[in-house]
Design a binder for these strands. Structure first.
Lengths: 199, 199
DNA sequence: CGTAGTATTGACTATCTTCAATGCCAGTGG
DNA sequence: CCACTGGCATTGAAGATAGTCAATACTACG
C-alpha cells in the first residue's frame, strides 16, 4: 500500500510523448507524481472523494462508474493511456464518478496547482482543455438511434482508435456503458464476427 | 446581412453575469465581439467551416447537428444562454458539427487568441475549461438504458435545469437528440403529462 | 476436481419503430 | 373572410428489436 511519491518531469519521461502528443509538453516542463499501480478492480478514487487533481493514465484501462439512484451502477466512460481522469469535475469540489481499474493500471497525478509562472500555467491549461474537449465530445452519445449491432461496432472502432490493446472489459461492462443487456452485446459481437474479421 | 462588429468587454455587459457566473469575469476583462442575431433555422457555422473561436450564447437556443454517413442528420446537443459553442473542436482545424439556431438567437464570439498577458490568458483558459467540463460531461449519455419515458423525463429536467425558457425544439428534434422516433417522444410526453404537471 | 466469473444460447415478452392517417394551427393569397 | 398550404403534433396498428429469464458452456484458478 505504499505510495510512490516520486516527482517526475514529463520531459524526462519515456512515455511522455503519448501523454502530451500535440507538441505541448517538450518545453512546458509539466510535473506529475507517479501513483502506486492499481490491480484489476481497484479504485483510483470514488464518487464523493474530494477532487484534488486530474490523473494521466499511462497504462491499463479504467472505467468511470456512476452510481444510480436505485443502487445500480452505470459505466460512463472507459479511459485508456494518454487520457485524463478526473477532469469531469474540474470545477466541482468532489468526484462525481468512481474510477475503477479494469486491468492492471498505472497513472500519474498532475501537479497543476503549483504554477511556477503564469505562462507555464497557461500552457498546461491549454493542454488540459485540448484533452477535455477531445475526450468528452466524441463520447457525447455518437450511437444513440443506432441499432445494437451498430452501437457495438461504433464502440469497438472508437476504442480501437484510442488504443491498440485488446478490449479489456467484459460484455456486461460494455453493456453497462452502451445501455444494453449483456446478452445483446454478445449477439451483436456474433453478428459482427460473421460480417467482418477481428472482433 | 451586416455584421455587428462591436467589441465588448464582458465586464460592462449586463448579461455578463450569466455568461461567466463563477466569479471569474469581473476582474478578467474578457473581450468578445457581438455577432449578428440569428433567426430560427439560420446557421451560426457549418461542419467543415474553419474553427476560429468559440461563441458564447446570450439568448435563444442552438442545436449542434452531426451529418451521418447515410445523409441523415442527428442532433448532438442543444445549447442555451451561458453555454459555449464550438469548444467541441478546440484542437481541430474545422468544425465537426453544424450549429443551427432553433429560435431567434444572439451570441458573442470570444476573442481568446489575443492574449494581452499570460495571466489573463490563464484566467480565460480556466473559465473555458470549466465550461467545457460542465457542458460535456453531464451529456455523456446519462439516459442510455432508460426507457423512452424516462429518457424524455431526464431530457426535460436537464433542459429545465439549464434554462427557464420553454422547450423551443420540436418533438422530432428531441427524438433526433435522444435517438428515438418522433412518435415515441409524443407518447412519452403523454405519459408524463398524465403523471405530473407542467410537461 | 470444484468453484466462480464470464460468455453464450434459446424462448418468451415488453418496448420501440415504422407506416399511415388525422388533427391542429399559423401564414398566405384570392 | 375563407380556402389552401405546410409544418408540427398526435394516434392507431403491425412488425421488428432488444430485454428478461433460464439454462448451459467455457476458462482460470485454487
Amino acid at each position: 500500500m505504499r505510495s510512490v511519491r516520486e516527482e517526475v518531469d514529463c520531459d524526462g519521461c519515456a512515455a511522455g510523448r503519448r501523454c502530451w502528443p500535440e507538441g505541448i509538453a517538450p518545453a512546458a516542463g509539466f510535473m506529475v507524481r507517479r501513483v502506486r499501480p492499481l490491480t484489476a478492480g481497484e479504485f483510483l478514487f470514488r464518487a464523493g472523494d474530494p477532487f484534488e487533481a486530474p490523473f494521466m493514465l499511462t497504462s491499463g484501462c479504467v472505467s468511470l462508474v456512476q452510481a444510480l439512484d436505485d443502487g445500480r451502477e452505470r459505466i460512463v466512460a472507459f479511459r485508456v493511456p494518454g487520457e485524463l481522469l478526473g477532469l469531469e469535475c474540474w470545477n466541482q469540489p468532489v468526484h462525481r464518478y468512481s474510477a475503477q481499474a479494469i486491468t492492471a493500471t498505472t497513472c500519474c497525478r498532475l501537479r497543476w496547482s503549483t504554477a511556477p509562472n503564469a505562462a507555464r500555467s497557461a500552457t498546461l491549461l491549454r493542454a488540459l482543455l485540448a484533452k477535455a474537449t477531445s475526450q468528452s465530445m466524441p463520447s457525447s452519445m455518437p450511437w444513440a438511434s443506432l441499432s445494437a449491432v451498430e452501437r457495438v461496432r461504433a464502440f469497438v472502432e472508437d476504442f480501437r482508435s484510442r488504443t491498440d490493446q485488446p478490449l479489456p472489459m467484459t460484455r456486461a461492462q460494455i453493456g453497462s456503458y452502451l445501455g444494453m443487456a449483456e446478452e445483446t452485446v454478445v449477439r451483436a459481437f456474433k453478428v459482427l464476427a460473421a460480417t467482418r474479421t477481428g472482433y
